[in-house]
């Protein structure tokens, strides 16, 4: 597996023209996980979206191979009228992979495969959302609160999946409020990076 890393240098991110975090720096190497922590509203999601390339950084650098990034947000991007299998198959086709069976197996979705995603419980939907990570075949996972609405057994299942991903040389950058049980994951507290000062200088930003 190729060696890769996710490096963030002196990054400032803003949301709605308001700088949230500044001077963020971290580096995650192949096989490592980094857990971001901080209170609600500090900018965890904004930071992840910036790293995933969905929004531009105000300043600073993100060096990451965007072709290896797989982003998973609060919403799972499921189509309620498609079955579990169809949902996964679609993402597998988009990412040009074909490993739907393994993903269903690993997240314990085999019995639900023909159910419409709209009839799943929120924990089951989340598991399906996480199964999508496996079918993408990408090495850098950027996960925004992946454990929301999962029960204890599913959290353990998910932790296993992440561990296997790291063992394969993958990278995981995630936010979570609960203990995942990832033994050697680094933790980064975002509090020290909280942006000081008011709104952005650029007058345009206020309107965006």
């Amino acid at each position: 597996m190729t060696c890769m890393e996710l490096r963030v240098e002196n990054l400032t991110v803003s949301r709605g023209g308001l700088p949230l975090l500044q001077g963020v720096r971290f580096c995650v190497a192949s096989g490592q996980a980094l857990i971001l922590r901080g209170p609600n509203g500090i900018g965890k999601t904004t930071l992840l979206r910036t790293v995933a390339g969905l929004q531009p950084a105000v300043s600073g650098d993100v060096s990451v191979d965007l072709d290896e990034v797989c982003y998973a947000a609060h919403l799972d991007g499921l189509k309620t009228t498609l079955s579990v299998e169809e949902n996964l198959r679609f993402w597998a086709d988009v990412f040009g992979t074909d490993d739907v069976e393994t993903a269903l197996e690993r997240l314990n979705l085999n019995e639900l495969r023909t159910r419409h995603a709209g009839t799943l419980s929120s924990g089951q939907k989340r598991r399906l959302g996480l199964a999508r990570l496996l079918v993408t075949g990408r090495m850098i996972w950027i996960l925004d609160e992946p454990t929301v609405s999962l029960d204890a057994a599913s959290v353990a299942l998910f932790a296993d999946v992440v561990r296997a991903h790291l063992a394969r040389g993958g990278i995981a950058l995630l936010t979570t409020h609960i203990e995942l049980g990832l033994e050697d994951a680094q933790v980064l507290e975002l509090n020290p990076f909280e942006a000081k000062g008011g709104a952005n200088d650029s007058a345009d930003e206020a309107f965006l």
Partner: peptide, 16 residues
């Protein structure tokens, strides 16, 4: 619809 259920974010970070 894709925006509401989050698919659009995921499509934007996909190889397409």
């Amino acid at each position: 619809l894709d925006f509401e259920d989050g698919s659009l974010d995921l499509l934007a970070t996909s190889p397409l």
